[in-house]
């Protein structure tokens, strides 16, 4: 088969492009440490997540030096904590969110960041993140969950470490 030299040129270029794409994903996972939200969170009671031994009452728990667990219950149409009282964590901490729904499928999207997960009833969405900067983030539900879906929002407040009130951390 005779292949024109120009065609050979762009065949090679497209193969390089594909190799580049694959290398990028590998770099993201290995080099930059980007993780996926998977099923490691485990399963809970679909109508009452806190009834399950693996899911604590909603709140912020300290698990180690600068490490926190945040348990969030999503429901029509609020995050607890998050909607009424903001989720408060100190700056420079590594925070693991455990998010469960008690009614329908919700979303947990920290607006303007890569934190984004579905919250499926019966399944805990678990994701870990480092908060390096003191600022606040908005949380939005991005799975249509009912009539007031568009009102389902919350707030994460990352406060300077010296301003963080340890008493806000729930008793383990």
């Amino acid at each position: 088969m005779e292949i024109h030299r120009f065609e050979k040129l762009w065949l090679v270029a497209s193969l390089l492009l594909i190799a580049g794409f694959v290398a990028t994903i590998v770099y993201g996972a290995v080099g930059a440490g980007v993780a996926m939200v998977d099923n490691s969170g485990g399963q809970v009671d679909a109508s009452d997540p806190t009834a399950s031994p693996d899911f604590r009452d909603p709140g912020v728990y300290q698990t180690g030096d600068g490490e926190y667990d945040v348990y969030v219950v999503a429901r029509q149409f609020s995050f607890t904590p998050g909607s009424g009282t903001p989720i408060r964590v100190p700056e420079g901490s590594e925070v693991t969110f455990h998010i469960a729904s008690r009614d329908v499928t919700h979303g947990f999207n920290v607006v303007g960041t890569n934190l984004n997960t579905m919250v499926i009833p019966g399944q805990v969405a678990q994701l870990t993140v480092e908060f390096d900067e003191a600022r606040s983030f908005h949380v939005a539900c991005n799975e249509y969950c009912g009539a007031a879906h568009h009102d389902m929002t919350g707030t994460i407040e990352v406060v300077p470490a010296e301003d963080f009130d340890e008493s806000e951390v729930a008793e383990a």
Binding site: G28, G33, G112, N114, L115, F137
Partner: peptide
């Protein structure tokens, strides 16, 4: 898309 918009974003899931 990948380096600016994704990795350049403030927060990323790391675990």
């Amino acid at each position: 898309m990948y380096f600016v918009e994704f990795l350049g974003n403030e927060l990323t899931v790391i675990g």
